[in-house]
Design a protein around this nucleic acid. Structure first.
Length: 556
RNA sequence: GCGCCCGUAGCUCAGCGGAUAGAGCAAUUGACUACGGAUCAAUAGGCCGGGGGUUCAAAUCCCUCCGGGCGCACCA
């Protein structure tokens, strides 16, 4: 028999509703969220705790402790509950009996990779657009953060049943590409970097590769404009290939690489504007064509066709959004850097203009900047100056797992300072190794167990009575909820922090409870049952690391 | 001026309105003739930026001020 926090909550809900009805408080509404159980920090407060009595006391005109005592009596009757206490101002503290608490270990081993999965987004088509760095240079640290976070989020949504498409929007249209092409051409001709162009060694490298790929002799016979076109088309392709490769090496692969240019070429931009015109949100002024975004809360209206007849940047996004909707995505999530947060409002206005629901059909996640710090002072990162710390540098310095983990273990709402020296020097201090080591240890223990003749032929959860065992079991049981919360809040860092907590609980258990017998001690059911617990921990650590895109080595 | 994010231990950061605010690193001290010491145990370190408010309960929600970052284009 297994008692999960979710089951317990469901039963508690029935008890609470029953109690309210008995008191005649029919108008008090209680949902499953209200009876969510907490895992108390202090073990003296039981395995699970509820604050429901304090929340409801007012609505039934009683004091919290009295209500808590009444509820506690009913809770006591639930199968698998060892004891129920009312403490403090009205907390209900629930302690499971060892068998009920321990059963989760067996469940985890049996479910394997599926343990932790949920149904939050069952069958929902989700489009996750991230990185989308311009093909004018390598991916810098800010983009790397989104690569790590976005890919992890995709994994988490998938675990919750979502049908996720990872998408990269490739801005291969507009003035920046011209600047890129002119920069390549200047490098080729030995001219200084154009005023508004891109500098750095990579420009020279790409220019050389373009020359190789095209035909050096042929190139000299072209006029300047044609030469620039050669550098544009081949240069962008090469740059884009490099970006794809470095992302792939980082463990991030996209399902769709969407070219902005294709929208312009296929008339999708005109179609999107025509659609908005039908809906009555387009007007002409000052020789330009505008979208009346102020109607939907934007600060000012936005130009979609400039007075020179060119489409503005946002018009590409109009067409792109419509395209995503036509491909059937109910939820479209775009991840942007903090330097683009001013763009959010007009995207939401656009969503509303299409008669869609802002923040539901379209959602924009803003990630704060990543700063590179050296000797305590922030280093300027600039693609144009060529002083970029790029994805490859980071991976070369600390390795893929450590890099991904470091970028994903903090909230995206916080700015991240990365001291590369520190980061490089203290590789072993990265908590990822603490977690990976715990995972490797579970396998080491399992190997030793096999050698000692300990197998999983018996599982008796009532034998898991050590304090470190009940703590470990509690942490294990919480994993599905952590995954769900990470999905709801779009916060993969919660999974990372959870993994650290689990690793800690495991190490402490390891220190106190042996799986293999010592010396001549015979193999007993305690050893066999502990092997289940050991293997369950390994499974959850692997699953958690998997959601972060970090490997779970069996040996280190 | 307006908007978004942040301010928690010496440092880097967690903390879903709950009980004595946590982890890692750094500091000090211990633990292998016991499944891997990339570990564990312990000590020390905090007016959770300041001030109001809401609440039985605030690091968490609201207001305000201070500090830091980033934005406010017919650029992309």
């Amino acid at each position: 028999m297994l008692v999960t926090p979710a089951q317990l909550s469901a039963q508690l809900l029935v008890i609470v509703i029953d109690a309210l009805e008995r008191r005649g408080a029919v108008d008090a509404e209680v949902t499953i969220d209200d009876v969510k159980l907490d895992r108390p920090r202090n073990r003296d407060h039981g395995d699970w705790a509820s604050n429901i009595a304090m929340k409801l006391a007012r609505s039934v005109a009683t004091n919290p402790r009295e209500l808590a005592l009444e509820l506690a009596e009913s809770i006591q009757a639930i199968d698998g509950i060892a004891s129920v206490d009312v403490a403090g101002p009205g907390f209900i503290n629930i302690t499971l009996d060892a068998a009920a608490a321990g059963a989760v270990a067996k469940t985890i081993v049996e479910q394997g990779p599926a343990f932790g999965n949920g149904t939050l987004y069952d069958g929902v088509k989700i489009n996750l657009e991230f990185v989308s760095a311009n093909p004018t240079g390598p991916i810098h640290l800010g983009g790397v953060r989104w690569a790590a976070v976005g890919d992890s989020l995709a994994r988490i949504f998938t675990a919750e049943g979502g049908l996720v498409t990872r998408e990269y929007y490739f801005n291969d249209h507009g003035g920046q590409i011209d600047r890129f092409a002119r920069s390549l051409l200047a490098s080729y001709l030995g001219e200084p970097t154009p005023e508004d162009g891109y500098g750095g060694q990579y420009i020279a490298d790409i220019a050389d590769r373009v020359v190789t790929a095209y035909d050096a002799g042929e190139l000299t016979r072209l006029d300047r404009a044609d030469q620039q076109e050669v550098f544009r088309s081949i240069g962008v392709d090469l740059m884009f290939g490099d970006i794809k490769k470095s992302l792939h090496d980082f463990g991030v692969d996209f399902d769709v690489y969407f070219h902005e240019n294709s929208l312009h070429e296929q008339g999708a931009v005109e179609a999107a504007i025509a659609r908005l015109r039908e809906l009555g949100h387009i007007f002409e002024a000052d020789g330009a064509t505008w979208l009346r975004t102020t109607e939907f809360g934007d600060d000012k209206d936005r130009v979609v066709i400039k007075s020179d007849g060119e489409a503005s940047y946002i018009s590409g996004d109009l067409a792109y959004y419509l395209n995503k909707r036509e491909r059937g995505f109910e939820r479209n999530i775009i991840m942007l850097g903090a330097d683009h947060h001013g763009y959010v409002q007009r995207l939401m206005a656009m969503t509303a203009a299409f008669h869609d629901v802002p923040y539901v059909n379209l959602e924009v996640l803003i990630g704060q900047m990543v700063n590179l710090v050296k000797d305590g002072t922030p280093q300027r990162m600039s693609k144009r100056a060529g002083t970029v710390v790029v994805l490859e540098d980071l991976v070369d310095a600390v390795g893929r797992d450590a890099a991904r983990y470091a970028l994903v273990r903090s909230s995206s709402d916080s700015q991240l300072d990365i001291d590369l020296d520190l980061f490089t020097k203290r590789t072993n201090d990265n908590p990822v190794f603490y977690v990976q080591y715990a995972h490797a240890r579970t396998h080491s223990v399992a190997r030793n167990a096999a050698d000692s003749g300990v197998d999983r032929s018996v599982f008796d959860a009532s034998l898991l009575t050590h304090e470190t065992e009940s703590v470990l079991l509690g942490v294990l049981a919480e994993f599905p909820r952590v995954v769900r919360q990470a999905a709801e809040l779009r916060e993969p860092h919660r999974v990372a922090r959870y993994a650290e907590e689990l690793a800690g609980a495991y190490h402490r258990w390891y220190d106190n409870c042996r799986v293999t017998p010592l010396g001549d001690e015979p193999v007993s059911d305690v050893h066999r049952t502990r092997l289940w617990l050991n293997d369950a921990t390994g499974t959850v650590l692997r699953n958690a690391l998997g959601l972060l895109g970090v490997s779970a080595p069996e040996r280190m």
